[in-house]
Nucleic acid binder design. Sequence first.
DNA 1: AGCATTCCCTACCTTTCGCATAGGAATAAT
DNA 2: ATTATTCCTATGCGAAAGGTAGGGAATGCT
Lengths: 148, 148
Amino acid sequence: MLKPSTRARYALRAMLELSLHEATRPLLLREIAKAQCISEKYLEQLTVPLRCARLLRGRRGSNGGYELAKPAKEIAAREIVEAVEGRLDLLDCVRMPVVCDRAPACAARGLWGRVSQAITAALSETTLADLREEQRLAEAKAVPSYEI
Amino acid sequence: MLKPSTRARYALRAMLELSLHEATRPLLLREIAKAQCISEKYLEQLTVPLRCARLLRGRRGSNGGYELAKPAKEIAAREIVEAVEGRLDLLDCVRMPVVCDRAPACAARGLWGRVSQAITAALSETTLADLREEQRLAEAKAVPSYEI
DNA sequence: AGCATTCCCTACCTTTCGCATAGGAATAAT
DNA sequence: ATTATTCCTATGCGAAAGGTAGGGAATGCT
């Protein structure tokens, strides 16, 4: 329960990978998938909603590939997750009380609403640029440079 | 994605129902299920983990039923959800980095960890007593008293 | 003691959905 | 034209969620 789907996780990692190579040539789907250990064909499907959300841009043909549609700094994790997963409201009744008869007087609904907001807030606070920085720091720590 | 399971939602509502009748006779499973529109047999299964977690107590035989194992004020929503769903960590790698090779240097993991914490915090802040109060307020608002 | 009532336990079934694979059409560069 | 790439749609599979069923064990009442 409450586990984020592979869609959300893969999409986030793919976008993170792109942010690591921002401002170079477009990355091939193949390269992204390999770097992040994701099935190429599966990842391909995730590009559809990401493009629709104007977070990702693809170029076809030779010298093609994918690139971020806007600067990493301007892309919040929330946008990525919402693009591939839809609204972040945990339950329909949170946004549309109509769907449940009990909704008008359901304290549980209020609680789930607060949880939804906590999640949304956490995902809104972090941008791809933040993640990129964390990633670089972590890599430097995990694999200390052996060059003198 | 990220949708809480019926286990978590039903368990919460059942416990809420019990808290609304705290300090009266034990409630029958049948009564709880009917009041909250939950399948009786399905709800019955949820009582197992709730009893194991010492949140719920059942009495068999005539005049039997269920009651809260401790005061509503001392039961956090988090305890209920964890009882029926296990740990709240969104991903195994958050708690046990070992399960993923990429974990030591994975910025995405850090983000999911923060989201996990946000959820846990939101669920820890609210007790059954809080929910009970919200419930009563909501009911009073939704169904204004027609008696003079 | 006997009986009704209720919780307790375990197995099973059904459906849904996450996850992934496959194959081809469109587009761009050389 | 050929090659390399993204784009699009359909389909399959397996696991897990969600729900059902039936009988056993304890308790209280008469």
